[in-house]
């Protein structure tokens, strides 16, 4: 069941210049949340912003009734959210969308930039199933991989940076351990990265789930603005996604 409710910000952490994390607490127990689901955040006091902003759920602590959002500052909405402080309230519609399947016994999670956000909670959910994933995080530079240590208890963490400032130099799809025999791949990040990961997975016959981030208005499948083309026609990324089996997406793997 989806909810609309106020949370209180209990922790705000700046992560380099471009990212920050907000940990939000609710007085009541949180509903079940699947890895890969997201929230629609209300942006107050910003003339340019009317619509809510969809933000993926980075972490959940059910025992503390908290969830954490990892936010990249990209425009007016996220810039306004960056001004919030501990003690402020934030109105959320959540949990939204369709998450990852948690299939596979030797999964690879590939994240780039802000796309690493859902992978922390995803890694934790795999651990709850007794599966330790391999987590490959990429960015142009070390600073653009905003969360690193938090992943380490939950799997084998690998890094790729284009400037070589952390881990192997190059793209995630050039990492030496990208080619290990995984039985499932989950990816979230820039579209060209997800396409490259998806193409490799399809070529090797490895099931692959990608998390899309189309522009949204409602977040609940009412406005039909955020559609992506699938083998079954247009589907709402907010409702039928954001996580899709890559083979169900039409034209996604084509190089364009």
């Amino acid at each position: 069941m989806k909810h609309i409710t106020d949370f209180t910000i209990v922790c705000r952490e700046q992560l380099g210049k471009h990212y920050f994390a907000l940990t939000l607490r609710h007085p009541d127990l949180l509903p079940p949340i699947a890895a890969g689901q997201f929230v629609e955040v209300e942006v107050r006091n910003c003339r340019e912003v009317m619509l809510r902003r969809p933000i993926s759920i980075h972490d959940v602590d059910s025992s503390a009734n908290t969830l954490t959002l990892l936010v990249q500052i990209v425009g007016n909405g996220t810039r306004q959210l960056a001004t919030l402080n501990e003690g402020d309230t934030l109105n959320l519609i959540y949990p939204l969308g369709h998450g990852f399947s948690l299939l596979g016994n030797n999964p690879l999670l590939v994240g780039g930039g802000a796309g690493i956000a859902p992978l922390l909670y995803l890694a934790k959910c795999y651990n709850d199933r007794g599966v330790r994933p391999t987590i490959l995080l990429g960015g142009r530079t070390k600073e653009l991989i905003p969360v690193r240590e938090a992943f380490e208890p939950y799997g084998k963490v690998l890094y790729s940076t284009e400037d070589g400032s952390l881990g192997e130099k190059g793209l995630v799809t050039q990492h030496s351990l990208f080619f290990a025999p995984y039985d499932h791949i989950c990816t979230c990040g820039p579209t060209p990265m997800m396409k490259a990961v998806g193409r490799y997975a399809v070529e090797k016959g490895i099931p692959c789930e990608v998390s899309l981030e189309n522009m949204m208005a409602c977040g609940i499948g009412a406005c039909l603005c955020c559609v992506t083309d699938t083998v079954d026609g247009h589907k709402c990324v907010c409702k039928e996604g954001p996580v899709f089996d890559v083979t169900k997406l039409a034209d996604f793997l084509e190089n364009k």
Binding site: M50, M215, V227
Partner: peptide
């Protein structure tokens, strides 16, 4: 009907444009 291709929404000051196209 499939409606129009993505992108079919843009936020504007105190409003939004849509071009869903009767999906």
């Amino acid at each position: 009907r499939q409606g129009n291709p993505y992108p079919r929404m843009a936020e504007t000051p105190s409003g939004m444009l849509n071009a869903v196209g009767l999906q």
